[in-house]
Design a protein around this nucleic acid. Structure first.
Lengths: 343, 343
DNA sequence: TTTAGCACTCTCCACTTTAGACTGCTAATT
DNA sequence: AATTAGCAGTCTAAAGTGGAGAGTGCTAAA
């Protein structure tokens, strides 16, 4: 096969993928020529398609139908388009304005980010809270609820807020609680759980109790990976033709309601820069073999990192997804940096 | 029609409903006798069914098929069974143990409650956060993030926690922030937003800024009705045979992803005691006309009330749902009361 | 290497057929 | 007046049929 012929075959593959993404139906040789004149006849395209099939880029649902891309075909497509993608300027502006309105409210901000992205790509969007490797004590507050009970509010350095109630056998007054809080805030500022444990202080029974609770909360925070995250756009994704079979639809719902599924899905170890695309069987989780993922980390490495991404059928608009994830993750990084400037 | 005949007809209706709930297929006259011998022939049952149809309790999908209950039939069924329902002792124990483990962590507690109930009834369960009519200031905390930014943590009397970041034009130190917090905590304890606004104090520019933010947060808290709630068991409900039509499935997903839908669905005005059942077209929201709701309020009236309930197809196990909602709402009330004992 | 031409394959849709499930009605019975 | 047996009649669901149309694979020629 000549060099020019190879090039044409690659074009054919690209057209098949993009056409299939648009129509969700097998792409016929003549359909390819309808929209992109390649200066050759349908028969030539058919030969190319036969060759593409042989090498595992495309497949045909039945003996003589059009071609549909296989994972390898999608992969090729993604490689060739990535880099060129950028969100339209007006979208960028709109999104920036939208997120700016919520910049002071952390949770709302992330929720809006997820929602916006979901609608932008017509699929499921996920945003996790930023998380640091090992959380640090920032501040506690003890508030009396009633005589025998108080609420402990613990603020961690990654701006995570956790609360826990404490019951006492004896009556405790707000003043006492205030003193304990003051002492701990002075002694433990910016320390990790293990550092706090290492510090031997003289403690009253009340203080011991509070310290124990703090330690528990920090431990559970360290253990959590993705518990809290926002997931938006389920209805959009499930409206796609790939989910006409009820089985698939329910499978997805089941997966997403399961606890801790995200941990298996996103390879947390990977801290590479930039947008990553995972296609079909490249997914570790078998339930996701029919889907693709486009995601990126955001935030400040080693300090406060979260993940933002899109999940959709393999037949998703990768160009749009990549540019959306890229832009919004950048935006979030910016906003996170503003809060963390010098922590 | 004799008294005895009326009684039999009621039995027939009850059997039709319960049989339909179990099988999801129209109930034939002979099927009724298969499981419940009423001492009469199928022809008699048929006469009864004709009468039930005439009065709008049941309908037939086509000219000569079995009967399916209409809303009026379900309503009759619910009236006759309610009161007799109680969760099996072992379930009660299991659930109590489960919730006890999370009693100190408010959010987890509610999430577990929702999850448990969803699995108990095989449908969607919803639990909202307790909310009081007008929230009261309990405590604030100001934590320095960096020179020009601080985080405001506001604790309200209903144990709701809200945070917000504050940016300053000038550099601000933690000490200053601490003093502001101390002052506000002293002056504003247990006051509502309007009370705080009415109190005229000498304020520095910094204090004015903080007060403004507090006021904003409390205002938005007062405005929120059901923003935060846990919804579990979508996959269970959507697995039911009523959702084989994709349209319906997507309709439900759309409804549930919409913001503020819950407010329309649950009649918040109703503060009656006990479990309430809403069947099909009794729902205000048209998207829910095919579904039923079983819900109850929990918490302390006027002080901290939330809602817990089940959403499922009209063909749901009402007996189980009513007993589950009843039991779990009672349990939550108990746990809430423990925290609020004398607020 | 590309192309024209044609037989062949397979899907999709509409239509028909058939078996079986239930009822409604009528006339007889209690 | 209420109940029953019996049977004709109605309707569904599933399986089968046939034809149109889309699209390919192959062959032989350019």
């Amino acid at each position: 096969m000549s060099k020019a012929a190879y090039k044409r075959r690659d074009s054919v593959l690209k057209i098949i993928v993009s056409e299939y993404i648009a129509t969700a139906t097998p792409v016929a040789s003549e359909a390819i020529l309808r929209h992109h004149s390649l200066g050759v006849s349908p028969a030539t395209i058919r030969n190319d398609m036969a060759s593409l099939e042989e090498e595992g880029y495309i497949a045909r649902p039945y003996t003589s139908s059009g071609g549909v891309p296989l994972d390898k075909g999608y992969r090729f497509y993604v490689e060739t388009i990535s880099g060129h993608a950028a969100l339209p300027g007006e979208d960028q502006k709109r999104i920036r304005r939208l997120l700016d309105t919520a910049v002071d409210e952390y949770d709302t901000l992330l929720k809006i980010a997820a929602n916006t992205m979901a609608r932008l790509v017509g699929n499921v969007a996920i945003v996790t809270f930023p998380k640091s490797a090992e959380c640090k004590f920032k501040h506690i507050e003890l508030v009396e609820m009633h005589q025998y009970m108080a609420m402990l509010v613990l603020i961690l350095s990654n701006a995570v807020l956790r609360r826990q109630t404490l019951s006492f056998d004896e009556s405790v007054r707000q003043e006492q609680l205030g003193e304990v809080a003051l002492k701990f805030n002075r002694e433990y500022a910016a320390q990790t759980r293990s550092q706090i444990a290492g510090k031997k202080l003289e403690l009253t029974p009340l203080e011991k109790k509070v310290l124990g609770t703090i330690s528990d909360v920090m431990a559970s925070e360290d253990a959590i990976e993705y518990e809290s995250s926002y997931l938006e756009g389920l209805r959009l994704m499930l409206g796609q033709p790939e989910f006409v079979q009820r089985e698939r639809m329910l499978g997805i719902l089941e997966l997403m309601e399961a606890k801790g599924w995200l941990r298996n899905v996103i390879d947390w170890q990977v801290t590479e820069e930039g947008v990553k695309v995972i296609i079909g069987e490249e997914n570790r989780e078998t339930a996701l073999h029919g889907l693709s993922l486009v995601f990126s980390n955001y935030g400040i490495p080693e300090q406060a990192q979260g993940t933002i991404g899109v999940i959709g059928p393999k037949r998703m608009d990768y160009s749009r997804a990549i540019s959306a994830v890229n832009y919004i993750s950048g935006l979030l990084s910016e906003l996170v940096a503003r809060v963390w400037r010098n922590d």
